[in-house]
């Protein structure tokens, strides 16, 4: 892969142009990584607002109409809706895994089948998350397999 940097003081903000024959795994990964750089999401804990880098978020979950997102050790409440998040995170490694959750595939270690035919994902921090089979196609598409 060739990297060219065009430095010019006239440019207002950095711009990334990818030249490729097709969207390969490598290209997809570049897009996903670049898409989350510098992006933060507002989350609340006891009324206090924090801005959390997207790359640190493990997953989003809807619990009784409220959206929570989880980092390695902390849980934040978000004001967004799950479908808005899904839409906004389309070009990233975040993917819907059930009606109530969106997972960061960069933080997903593995998927395992349970005895009752359900799928269980293991996250980087060891936490388990239920994955609906209906969303496996979307995961495969995002991973390019």
């Amino acid at each position: 892969m060739k990297i060219t940097i065009d430095k010019n003081e006239l440019y207002k903000e950095p711009e990334v142009v990818i030249k490729c024959r097709a969207i390969s795994h490598e290209v997809q990964e570049i897009i996903s990584v670049i898409s989350v750089i510098g992006k933060n999401l507002a989350g609340e804990i006891d009324g206090e607002t924090f801005f959390i880098p997207l790359a640190e978020i493990l997953y989003f979950e809807s619990v009784e109409g409220c959206i929570f997102f989880y980092t390695d050790k902390t849980v934040y409440k978000s004001q967004s809706r799950l479908y808005n998040l899904e839409e906004g995170l389309r070009d990233t490694y975040f993917v819907r895994v059930s009606k109530t959750a969106i997972v960061n595939l960069k933080k997903l270690k593995s998927i395992k089948r349970e005895k009752n035919s359900r799928l269980l994902g293991t996250l980087a921090n060891g936490e388990k998350i239920m994955i609906s089979r209906g969303y496996v196609a979307e995961i495969r598409k995002k991973l390019g397999v």
Binding site: L105, K106, K109, S110, K112, R113, A124, R140, G144, V145
Partner: peptide, 15 residues
């Protein structure tokens, strides 16, 4: 099973 094997392989490659 095949789908999950592929996903896990890709997840290992990825992260």
């Amino acid at each position: 099973r095949k789908h999950i094997e592929k996903i896990n392989k890709r997840l290992t490659e990825l992260n």
